[in-house]
Nucleic acid binder design. Structure first.
Lengths: 206, 206, 206, 206
DNA sequence: TATGAATGAGATTTCATTCAT
DNA sequence: AATGAATGAAATCTCATTCAT
């Protein structure tokens, strides 16, 4: 990478980081491009060399941050070194994500308000350049690697993730209808049931 | 109601209806108060006689529209006259709501982007003035009326509704990861499992 | 006219007058809407209540100023009270317009750069509201009132005006190729010839 | 010419051609230097190696294009090989120019909005380098070569050209007040009169 | 109550020009 | 000679809110 290129990368990173802290601190619509540029230490016009508009940078961030979240959870799983069943693995990942979001409420707000399944799936399945760990494989593995063949694993993961993300928003931020700690046992049992019922033997008749 | 009062009501309704169509057509942030007022046929200043600002009218709308949705479903249930089990009733309501949203995608977009559990619960449990059907009771009944005592019925309803609203958004609007029709059997089986596991006998050990 | 209306008229006039002096002093493209508004003593947003953009106010001005020029010349003609032939009347009007432009070089610059036959004709033939003198009649009369029937009077007036406006620009502003005084005799003789050749007897065979 | 030189020439030509098409397509003020450079396939900075700014390239173009127009007309005249009177020659040239402009309306727009007598005269009387036809002589000849001595030939040519350029704009582009075909006979008769009245015998008394 | 003209801060966006590479 | 990233001033335009009528 030439000096110029690394300089450009630095500018772009600075814009992304600044935008993220402003978006989480005060919301997307109350953050102006002027704010982002000046806090990032670049001229207003420079912003437009890297991003089309505010929504361009927001989408890039949502994608980036939600992938990070998932990667961190998968990394924890791998690092734990424990021998687990498929269901245990899923619960482990869910638990890790919930804890991350509980620790980082502004990230939760940002992601919840702006994430959609399309963005997320795209982020997870698009391999990053220069990435030594192949995350695409891990995700694929999550879906493929089950003790018995699982029926429609993508639907199952989709439902788990949607249930996860929508319930934790209210529980973590407002303790409504109950706190995260109170919610967890019900949530996990529900997830266990969901997985169990997706084993091929249980394929529902339509 | 005097003529003046009915005139006022007409203005307010006109503002609400206009705001709803603009919000669904072009989004909340791209709709200005000017737009709403002029399309509603009143002066800009008049808007401020009825609503504090754009977010005031938006919240009123979210609350109103989501209640309507739920009421219509419960009304269908009541009108069906069928004898059903508790689980069947829940599934009936969920199915009715999904069909309503599938028919009215702009309503779905609007509610999904702006609804929160707090607003919804508040809307459901606040009795409307001049309301001939006692709605609050129906909701309470949904929670209370179970063949056996149900553990934490509010958590259960909360999880069902969150799962419902977040999965249907992606399925109805983008057919992602599958179409609504394909999703339904999995979703309903999941809901059945959730209800079953909330019977007191199943109370999870925390 | 209510107080409010007269106030609005005052604002609009102030904007028009300010725009005109800025346009003539520094050109249209170097004049900003901010300039116009602040010099006119109104807020920037107020400009947009009266005009769509810079080109809207420019067109209104071109039309207004060129009409004024023509009207003043016709008024002089009427005021002179002299008995003149048709040709003498035309020359009188042309001479008066040239003198006005010679006295007001910034007006000449502004009009020359922005006037088109379409705008001019439209301005001349659209009667102003509240206008005690009916100018449309005078213009029509200029075209219709000839000792003999004139062939294609509109083409003739068109050619005279175009010759007039394009030659005087260079002569008045740059004395190129000669001064206005030097140009006049040639110009007037040319105009006399143009009129004479438009008498029906001289209708050209195509 | 070295390969480097020809490369430079190519860049400059590319910039000139690109600028011309953009100026005629969307107007000078709506064309940015960025546009010109990127469409011409060179970097923005390169533009400044060849031209001072947008108005520099515009003036170079006006001058170049209007000379080309006149040269083409004179070339046709020379090529026709016909024996003509002085007046016939002028009419020939005028007719040829009108036809060229009628064929190339964007050129007409560009020249009309940007041509001034000063630029034109300068262009006509500045001999081009490497020019095999001695163009200056032809123009001088147009002025000098008359059967009888002509009074103030430059004023005459000036008036003819101004009449020509201003009337044709409206007639060709908008058919206002009449079409070019309808205008021509009147225009030519007018020009004939102008020439005739410039014979010394007709010198006007000031 | 209702109006809508006026405000003016502030948002977005453009672009001529410079300069390090 | 050529590049194109960076600049930042300046332009256009929007819009929530107020207030005199």
């Amino acid at each position: 990478m030439t000096k110029l290129d690394s300089n450009k990368k630095k500018k772009e990173d600075s814009l992304l980081n600044t935008a993220f802290s402003l978006f989480t601190a005060q919301g997307v619509s109350k953050t102006s491009i002027s704010d982002i540029a000046s806090k990032a230490g670049v001229a207003k016009g420079t912003f437009y060399l890297y991003f089309k508009d505010k929504y361009d940078i927001r989408n890039r961030l949502v994608s980036h941050k939600s992938t990070q979240l998932f990667r961190a959870a998968l990394e924890s799983l791998r690092a734990s070194g424990r021998k687990m069943s498929y269901t245990e693995k899923i619960i482990f990942v869910v638990d890790d994500i919930l804890d991350q979001l509980n620790e980082n409420k502004s990230l939760l707000t940002f992601i919840s308000k702006n994430l959609s399944w399309g963005i997320f799936k795209n982020a997870l399945t698009t391999p990053l350049k220069n990435d030594d760990i192949d995350f695409k494989d891990i995700y694929t593995e999550m879906i493929a690697d089950a003790p018995y063949e699982i029926d429609q694993p993508e639907i199952m993961i989709f439902m788990i993730l949607e249930l996860l993300s929508s319930t934790c928003y209210s529980a973590i931020l407002y303790n409504e209808p109950v706190t995260l700690a109170e919610l967890k046992p019900y949530l996990y049992r529900c997830i266990e049931n969901m997985i169990e019922s997706h084993y091929i033997k249980d394929k529902p008749s339509v």
